[in-house]
């Protein structure tokens, strides 16, 4: 009887020890996985949570722009990567309304982001990709764009015209569709 009890308790001990090993291994594996993955996940995802960086960029002197004309101006995004080089550049269509007032349109079509061109004689913005057309005030004139051209903030400081950098204007899906 005692021998049987001993055997039984030995089997229980072995079983307990095995389940302890299993639990220990699972916990240790979880910890080592977390230690491996978390810094990487933070490294990749942290930029998404960072407050957007916006800067005012000078694009020229106010007196150098002709009133009523729409011209392409280039400026740099506030990129933090020194190796970004030419890819940090972006552009806007700038129009001088009067001596102190300017409008700056994003060059990205609101359909799928292709670069829109200003057709001076037709006073229209046209997109080469899917034929989106916008009037001179940026409102949609034809084609698939669902929204008007995005605008940048512009100001005149002293004699300089400055544009405030902004994210790529994304066209998102409204949660409640417009019926």
């Amino acid at each position: 009887m005692n021998e049987r009890q001993n055997e039984g308790s030995q089997t229980e001990n072995v079983s307990d020890r095995r389940s302890f090993y299993v639990r220990l291994s699972l916990i240790a594996s979880s910890v080592l996985m977390a230690l491996m993955v978390l810094p990487g996940a933070g490294f990749i995802l942290a930029p998404l949570l960072k407050k957007p960086l916006q800067k005012w960029r000078t694009v020229g002197k106010a007196k150098d722009f002709e009133t009523g004309a729409t011209v392409l101006v280039q400026f740099e995004d506030p990129s933090q990567e020194p190796w970004a080089g030419v890819t940090a550049k972006t552009a806007a269509w700038l129009r001088k309304v009067d001596a102190s007032q300017f409008i700056a349109f994003s060059v990205n079509c609101r359909h799928l982001g292709c670069p829109v061109r200003w057709i001076e004689d037709a006073t229209l913005f046209m997109c080469p990709c899917h034929g989106g057309v916008y009037y001179s005030d940026g409102t949609v004139a034809g084609g698939p764009p669902p929204e008007a051209l995005a605008r940048y903030q512009v100001r005149v400081r002293g004699e300089n015209v400055q544009i405030r950098t902004a994210a790529v204007p994304l066209t998102t899906t409204p949660l409640t569709p417009n019926l």
Partner: peptide, 26 residues
């Protein structure tokens, strides 16, 4: 990026993840 942005709810985050920022860059 614009196509990814059309995904409901997570679109903008997905786009930013693809671009590695808010605009094309380094």
């Amino acid at each position: 990026t614009e196509m990814a942005a059309r995904a409901p709810l997570i679109g903008p985050l997905l786009s930013e993840f693809l671009l590695g920022g808010e605009t094309v860059g380094g």
